[in-house]
């Protein structure tokens, strides 16, 4: 995969088409990983090169949907990085519990695992009944899965260790019913979450929230789009609201990062400064 200037021009042209024809804006995504995923898409979808894929995607919606699967990385887990959730539970929840009603935004929620993890945590801390969780993403297939709340029962068993390390107070199986090979998230967990289509690249703030959890999404953006997304979070958060990022993400290298201060440094939880 050569990073020649002409190759970059081809990528630009494809991204322009995706924006103009399909209204998905990947133009300010981190180029290095985008190029790798485009190369994987060309190969796995069976095209000779990027230009061939481009020609086809411009006029075929089903090809676009498959390409979208390559361009948006759908890797998720319940209670991924248990210490993050433990820190939320131990350090953030006591402060959140002082509000009469709570709104949480899970930005880039993929197939819902992170949102359900937060719902379970808030339920165990007695806050879920007064909480509204907005969970947003741009991948319609992932959003559909998230709203259904159905996961392989095998995977749920594997998440049990995460759940316990995250300070889980009951049993993860209390929150789903197993039906054959599937685990269906229980109604009280699903009821408090609204899954919706929303792009951090092209959409605006839709509610005032007390906590934003946006994990392993900003790594896919370039510095400028990252700064834009941080701006959205700062605008959405209430005074002194909380922002949680992925285990190796920070606001340090991003313009506008100074609107946030470290809250739980190791666990990548930040607090809006003003």
């Amino acid at each position: 995969m050569a990073a020649t200037a002409s190759h970059d021009a081809e990528v630009d042209a494809l991204l322009d088409t995706l924006f103009r024809v399909h209204h998905y804006d990947f133009r300010a995504y981190s180029r290095v990983s985008l190029r790798r995923r485009l190369a994987a898409a060309v190969e796995r979808l069976g095209y000779a090169d990027l230009a061939a894929l481009h020609a086809h995607v411009a006029r075929d919606g089903t090809v676009f949907n498959r390409l979208l699967g390559f361009l948006t990385v759908q890797v998720s887990e319940m209670f991924r990085d248990p210490h993050y959730f433990l820190a939320l539970r131990e350090s953030v929840v006591p402060l959140l519990s002082t509000y009469p009603s709570l709104r949480v935004w899970v930005a880039g929620c993929s197939s819902g695992e992170e949102a359900y993890s937060l719902a379970i945590l808030l339920h165990e801390e007695g806050l879920l009944e007064r909480t509204m969780i907005y969970a947003t993403d741009i991948n319609p297939v992932a959003l559909e899965k998230a709203a259904a709340g159905i996961y392989p029962v095998e995977a749920m068993r594997a998440y049990t260790t995460n759940y316990q390390q995250a300070g889980g107070k009951a049993s993860l199986s209390d929150y789903y019913t197993a039906a054959y090979d599937n685990a269906v998230m229980s109604r009280p967990m699903r009821e408090r979450i609204t899954f919706a289509d929303h792009s951090l690249a092209t959409d605006t703030v839709f509610a005032e929230v007390h906590l934003v959890s946006c994990r392993n999404v900003l790594i896919y953006f370039d510095a400028k789009l990252q700064a834009h997304a941080l701006g959205l979070f700062a605008d959405a958060l209430c005074r002194r609201g909380f922002l949680g990022l992925g285990a190796r993400e920070s606001v340090r290298f991003t313009a506008g990062g100074d609107r946030f201060a470290d809250f739980a440094r190791e666990d990548r939880i930040f607090r809006k400064v003003a």
Partner: peptide, 11 residues
């Protein structure tokens, strides 16, 4: 990545 700078991914 360009810069050069670090880019992480969970692909």
């Amino acid at each position: 990545a360009d810069g050069p700078s670090i880019a992480l991914s969970v692909d």
